[in-house]
Amino acid sequence: MLVVGVIGLQGTGKSTIMSLLSANTPEEDQRSYVFRAQTQEIKERGGNQSTGIDFFITQERVIFLDTQPILSPFILDHVINNDRKLPPEYNLPHTYVEMQSLQIAAFLFTVCHVVIVVQDWFTDINLYRFLQTAEMLKPSTPSGSHDSTGSSSSDDGAEYYPHIVFLQNKSRREDFCPRNFKDMHMVVDKLMAHSHLKYKGTLSMLDCNIVPGLTQEYLDAEVNMFLLPVQENDGEDNLNKAGAGTYPLFSLLPGYRGHPTFSTMVSKLRSQMLAMPRCQLSHTILTEKNWFHYAARIWDGVKKSSALSEYSRLLC
């Protein structure tokens, strides 16, 4: 099986992308998606649709985990304005929201083969600080035996870290320019240079033959990065109307985008995602049922983590 999780800031399109990777197509009504996207009413209120962690299992034995937004201003506003009683270990609302986000990220880093980091602009330096903090606070991989002080951990190999994919959603035409594409890879490579997360070598836009004329030699270091353009429903109609109004002949021609269509890009991303390595998450082989029990045990460990508690005290 393959376990794919997602994290990202509010409104970046996490639920939509996870639905398209798992069971839906761009042509379907978004109201029928397995992971519900933001409704217009929620967008106008500045709210978030997903709460906690939702999961969906496909026939290809892929488990998709959709999560609530990290560092959400709406969740913080809800905590402050509704006088929600904080757990005793948290003194301030913003500390509670940040620690909740770190718990989710640390959990995904332990139970997923692949974690997708969704951004809708390039790039927020605070997001990389958050990823490094979550990596630091990630619980250690449980040993094969129940004896936590035994020597099995050191015998069975190094600590487990997932593959991480940086997904640039709602990309503009200039983002697909080879020079900008190269610069984005260089920035992510520099920011993640000291991370143990597997951020290079397992997902490639160049292997999809999406960017014509580009070879592997063009990129000094190709990180796991994929670009998705704005969906055609949002931009194509405006482009065609503008062209038809000025030059009627343009209405007979397909609009020039400067990149493949959204549907094509999603299809390529899904193919690459299903081909990601399915390595062992723990020191024992897990079935779907065993993974669920394993994930529940990890979540309990995250909630009781002394490292997270100590970090929470430092924030105060």
Results as ranks from 00 to 15, higher is better:
residue 311 Y to I: 01
residue 206 L to S: 03
residue 162 P to Q: 10
residue 178 P to H: 05
residue 79 V to C: 00
residue 250 F to V: 11
residue 233 N to C: 06
residue 156 D to N: 15
residue 122 F to H: 12
residue 193 A to L: 13
residue 282 S to E: 12
residue 46 G to M: 06
residue 44 E to M: 12
residue 249 L to A: 15
residue 264 T to M: 07
residue 268 K to V: 07
residue 18 M to V: 04
residue 218 Y to T: 08
residue 309 S to I: 06
residue 301 G to W: 10
residue 305 S to G: 06
residue 59 Q to T: 13
residue 305 S to A: 10
residue 35 F to A: 06
residue 22 S to T: 02
residue 156 D to V: 02
residue 20 L to D: 05
residue 15 S to V: 05
residue 297 R to Y: 11
residue 155 D to N: 09
residue 184 M to P: 00
residue 304 K to Q: 14
residue 257 R to D: 00
residue 151 S to V: 14
residue 211 V to M: 15
residue 277 P to M: 13
residue 7 I to F: 02
residue 29 D to T: 01
residue 199 Y to G: 03
residue 55 F to N: 08
residue 195 S to Y: 02
residue 197 L to F: 04
residue 267 S to I: 01
residue 64 F to I: 03
residue 15 S to P: 03
residue 233 N to L: 13
residue 21 L to S: 08
residue 87 P to K: 06
residue 304 K to G: 06
residue 242 A to N: 07
residue 257 R to N: 04
residue 249 L to F: 12
residue 82 N to V: 04
residue 240 N to T: 13
residue 273 M to C: 11
residue 19 S to M: 05
residue 22 S to P: 07
residue 12 T to Y: 07
residue 136 M to T: 14
residue 246 T to W: 09
residue 104 I to L: 05
residue 311 Y to G: 06
residue 297 R to A: 15
residue 135 E to Y: 06
residue 39 T to L: 04
residue 207 D to W: 07
residue 276 M to K: 03
residue 32 S to Q: 13
residue 1 M to A: 11
residue 35 F to T: 01
residue 301 G to C: 03
residue 115 V to S: 11
residue 122 F to T: 00
residue 92 L to M: 10
residue 24 N to V: 04
residue 219 L to C: 08
residue 237 D to W: 11
residue 244 A to G: 11
residue 132 Q to A: 14
residue 213 G to W: 10
residue 255 G to D: 10
residue 271 S to P: 01
residue 23 A to S: 13
residue 279 C to R: 14
residue 257 R to V: 02
residue 285 I to D: 14
residue 273 M to S: 09
residue 306 S to M: 10
residue 243 G to I: 00
residue 17 I to A: 07
residue 58 T to H: 01
residue 226 F to Q: 02
residue 267 S to K: 12
residue 226 F to I: 04
residue 62 V to M: 10
residue 115 V to D: 05
residue 276 M to F: 08
residue 204 S to L: 07
residue 172 R to M: 13
residue 166 F to H: 12
residue 60 E to I: 00
residue 308 L to N: 00
residue 227 L to C: 02
residue 56 F to I: 02
residue 213 G to V: 05
residue 26 P to T: 09
residue 293 H to T: 11
residue 299 W to K: 14
residue 129 R to C: 04
residue 197 L to D: 06
